[in-house]
């Protein structure tokens, strides 16, 4: 136990590594800003998020020591990201696939809805009278 403990408390990374990772993060920031001025259509998001993911991985692995620490922490981190993904994906199973079997789209009746007038209890008008159906 004590030998192990000494080994763990004294895991010191070289200064150069920290500075290199920091430099890489700044460079990646520059890259992602530069790339955002190019137009890839839908791919812009993918590129931006991929670069962000690389940056986050660098932070987690080196600054947060996940590369060197107990792998349990890495596991916890991955679990968090995984469940977040489940939350997003499963919610979008619904929000992205509504109204696929109807001819009338069940989306918002008034897309620019701010139905509230002075009194929130009174939500008069707009809904039932509007027959136009937008998406």
């Amino acid at each position: 136990m004590t030998a192990e403990s000494a080994e763990h408390t004294k895991h010191i990374l070289p200064l150069r590594l920290y500075l290199a990772v920091g430099g890489a993060l700044i460079v990646l920031t520059a890259v992602t800003v530069a790339v955002s001025f190019l137009h890839f259509g839908g791919w812009n998001v993918v590129v931006a998020l991929s670069i962000a993911a690389i940056k986050a991985t660098l932070v987690a692995m080196f600054f947060m020591h996940l590369k060197y620490d107990n792998k349990l922490y890495l596991f916890i981190f991955i679990v968090a990201v995984l469940f977040l993904a489940v939350f997003i994906v499963f919610t979008m199973f619904d929000t992205m696939t509504r109204d696929q079997i109807y001819d009338v789209k069940a989306g918002p009746i008034t897309p620019d809805a701010t139905i509230y007038q002075s009194n929130p209890a009174d939500t008069s008008g707009t809904v039932a009278d509007s027959t136009s159906v937008h998406r």
Partner: peptide, 29 residues
């Protein structure tokens, strides 16, 4: 073709075994 003017309601006819929420600012069918 259903919608609500204020809060969520739900159209329920037990004899027809049918039920569907009625939402404000959106149609449900």
């Amino acid at each position: 073709l259903m919608s609500s003017k204020d809060v969520i309601h739900s159209f329920f006819v037990p004899a027809f075994r049918m039920k569907m929420d009625v939402l404000p600012n959106r149609y449900t069918i």
